[in-house]
Design a protein around this nucleic acid. Sequence first.
RNA 1: GGGCGGAUAGCUCAGUUGGCAGAGCACCUGGAUCACAACCAGGGGGUCACAGGUUCAAGUCCUGUUCCGCCCACCA
Length: 879
Amino acid sequence: MERGNPETLQQPYDPNRVEGRWYALWEERGVFRPRPAPGEAFVVSIPPPNVTGSLTIGHLLGESVRDVVLRWQRMDGRETLYVPGTDHAGIATQNVVEKKLREEGRSRHDLGRESFLGEVWTWKEQYGGLILRQLRRFGISADWTRERFTLDAGYSRAVLHTFQRLYEKNLIYRGRYIVNWCPRCLTALSDEEVDHVDTAGSLWTLRYPLKDSKQFITVATTRPETMLGDTAVAVNPKDRRYARLVGRTAVLPLMRREIPIIADETVDPRFGTGAVKVTPAHDPNDFLIAQRHGLPEIVVMDEHGTMNDSAGDFRGLDRFEARRRVLDALRDAGYLEKSEPYTVPVGHCSRCDTVIEPYLSWQWFVRMAPLAAPAIEAARRGQVKFYPARWKKVYLNWLENIRDWCISRQLWWGHRIPVWYRGSEMTVSAERPAGEGWTQDEDVLDTWFSSWLWPFAILGWPDETEDLKRYYPNSLMVTAADIIFFWVARMVMAGLEFRGEVPFRHVYFTSILRDAEGRKFSKSLGNSPDPIEMMDRYGADAVRFTLIYLTPTGQDLLFDEKRLETGKFFANKVWNAARLVQMRLGDEDLAKVRESALVLTLADRWILSRLANAVKDVTRNLKTYRFNEAANAIYQFAWAEYCDWYLEMAKPRWAEDADPVDRRTARWVSWKVLDGILRLLHPFMPFVSEEIWQALPHEGETLALAAWPRAKRSWFDAEAERQVSYLQELVVAVRNLRAENKVGPGRLVPVVVRGGEAQLDLVERLADQIKPLARIESLTLARDGTRPRVAASAVVQGTEVFLPLEGLIDLEAERQRLAKETDRLLADLEGCRRKLRNQDFLAKARAEVVERERQRVAQLEETLEKVKRAQESLGAVRG
RNA sequence: GGGCGGAUAGCUCAGUUGGCAGAGCACCUGGAUCACAACCAGGGGGUCACAGGUUCAAGUCCUGUUCCGCCCACCA
């Protein structure tokens, strides 16, 4: 056993002095590496942060949750593994480096693909690891020897292997479709990467003249500039209004192009005019119509959103300028019938917020329906479970309506698509094919096409590594619900497809943190507190504890930095309790003391019982992912029970002249319970708990590997809890009488207690503990039933407590207080009696509930009687 | 258009099989008592959004309403 050094616990607690000290030791001792243990290992992985990212408060919440579970499981004897890493984040990273180049007056095209990628790698090496370095400071128990990057060599091999395998199964195809195109990032995006924002716009009604006629057919549109690419007008075949026009020809205004009027069932006769302009190259619906009817596709915009040569007079204009000009031209020529206000959901690039353009191009897609089916099954059967459970519905709804996934990106930074072309030949291969003349597909893969492999790619897949066998599936995924589609659902699909098993058994969704106004924390809003500053000011422990303590299960959390005081002050409280205990420990080696050599007092039995309760509570709440409840249970036990009551009751027993056995018992129990608190606290506050634990008697190298406490059956003691709660009420009553009568704590008071034999015996036994707690000078047991003539009084569980302070108490105030108390008692009593008069209640409520009500009435009556007598006796005194 | 969540003390939120409404912060009173003023002791403060219903009993279960918030959706 190592002895604690009293010098180490200085006041007040300074996290900055302590927190730097333990991480290196934990790492050095391999605490964070898996330690073989029987049973299934507990495995989690980081949702890999973007290499461009900086640490946010949201990351810290996720890390806190993960680390709490990990450290708890590790202490509980499980083999644990936490794999850290980062995501190459294709668009985000390329944007950052391109921006840097732009500031230097260069573009990626000046550099060329190879040297641009060189620049990105250099940038990545320099800044890419920042978040992970910051997370060490946060104390996360990650196995850094297994750190991964989604673009490292092994991971890349997994990604390309995946592509090949899905291609061979005909689950990947190349096709020419309308995709979401960002004219600023110059790449296609998946549907999930587009944010729709309801925007006030207009619905314009246009007149298209019929060929060889003075008549028009009118169409409605929200995007008039696309009319330049119209190749038809469509109506519903059942729409009698237009039946005679189907088959005729309209003349496209401004372009003078003759276009057919066709019938298609997808046209809604009730919307607009019932006739729709068809722009196959710029609208996904129109594209489908065009395919069914063999219409030509005319692209009128280039990849920058600029009108091209097919746009006639409007060539060279930006798309929004073109809209204005087209409207002007239509209006001038009499083709604009009307415009009405209309709200349009406008798609924006989730990366740069540019308005998305539907764009016709060749892209690679994953056929999702066959992958979704098993993922749906897995959730339905409970092979993967969600916490909170309601997310299952969201997950299922998405998978049941899934659409094919556009995975090609017109970027350079990422996994280059392993497809090679030579003339009309095409082959899929991770390596350059043998022979001359092969060129590789220019595009890279969507970042999420690598992330979805994370739970097994980090373990060495596609090789059948030992890690893969032992640590797949992972146990738990902790993440925010905003990436349930991007990532969670896709991981389940990938896991089932490539490993035949779900990637993790449980998914826990953390709260989304918002500022005081309820806005999401974001860099662009500038409302995000700096996590590093928070750690500097409050300590990593405090941040961890507070976030966990505050986070409601499955609800968003309004966060204010000041709340971190909760954790900071709590750390200080535990620290000071430890100082007290340490100072009074004496020389004896407490870890070697036998419990049989101790004589437990009521207070000892009580606190051990409460500890057993706390252990049960914390553990149960951890098991059910009610982290805030778990934190709350420790907080309450440590502060409101151990510090506020037990330590205060133990103080006199530590005195030099105290009974040696009792002193030793008090020392042992106070140490033992503190040790239990530290163990329970360690997952939440690893640094301060380790620091204290090391300074106290302990066995083992580190608290991180000490055993999670078990609730000892023999420690539960209902009788002790009952008696101490009486004691507490008694003390509180005396304190209350003192306060009401303005008797300062400096003045010791005499107290008289009147009551039944058993209770007086109990008070007598506890007198030595009660007296200092309530600042009592003399505690008189009125066994003969006499009562002080003039006194402030209160009733506690049937006993009367008197503060005989003739001349000192404020008689009028005391009378008022008693009157108020009487009113309260009468109201309560009436409520209870009403219940007991109710025959239905007596007949139908559970017997114990009725019995409880009866006892309550008896107690209230007794109390009322005593309060009345106090009033009478006070009334006899002239005040 | 569909789906989900929320409404409890001045604020932020707990309230896990229905059985006496809780915590932290803020507020008021008192306090340098030898672990802690980052503290201690005491206190005030609630029509549990609204309206119905089920039940002996509802913050809790059911229905509806009103406000917030979020997600999904190609009616141009």
